[in-house]
Amino acid sequence: MHLHRFEKIWLMLGAGGLALFILLLCVNAFAMGMAPPSNMEMIDPKKVAETPPFDKPGLKQVGDKEYDAYMTAFAFGFSPTKMEVPVGSTVNFHVTSPDVIHGFQIPGTNVNFMVMPGHINSATYTFDKPGEYLIICNEYCGAGHQVMATTIIVK
């Protein structure tokens, strides 16, 4: 098989570029701890309401300016409905669903993951700027999907 010289160069540049992407992604994911949300914990979706800590969804302070947010995403809302943290707080979100698949996204941040029945998914974010952050469901979950949202207030 015969390759034109320019095509050889092009394919080498292309493969090199892709290899660079892979390298950067690996370093960023595994050495800098920014791998995508891949929580392996499981839960019975039919018993979410009676399984701690999801029986009492809410914020739990776990350190100086660090919180665990145990939340449920259901058709069509999130629980708890009200959350407030001081500026500079780090919040570890842990979310599960008692019914269908939902999404969990805070626009303008990297918090964006799937909430699946039977699984718990997590992400961490440090809120350095004050404001009322929108939390939305970004996976179609039924007729009321577009109203499924809440906020977290950072003061």
Binding site: H2, H4, R5, F6, E7, I9, W10, L13, G14, G17
Partner: peptide, 17 residues
């Protein structure tokens, strides 16, 4: 074929890249 003039092609794919 080796001598075929493909500099335009090369420039174009570099733009794509």
């Amino acid at each position: 074929t080796e001598q075929e003039n493909l500099k335009g092609t090369f420039a174009a794919v570099l733009i794509v890249g």
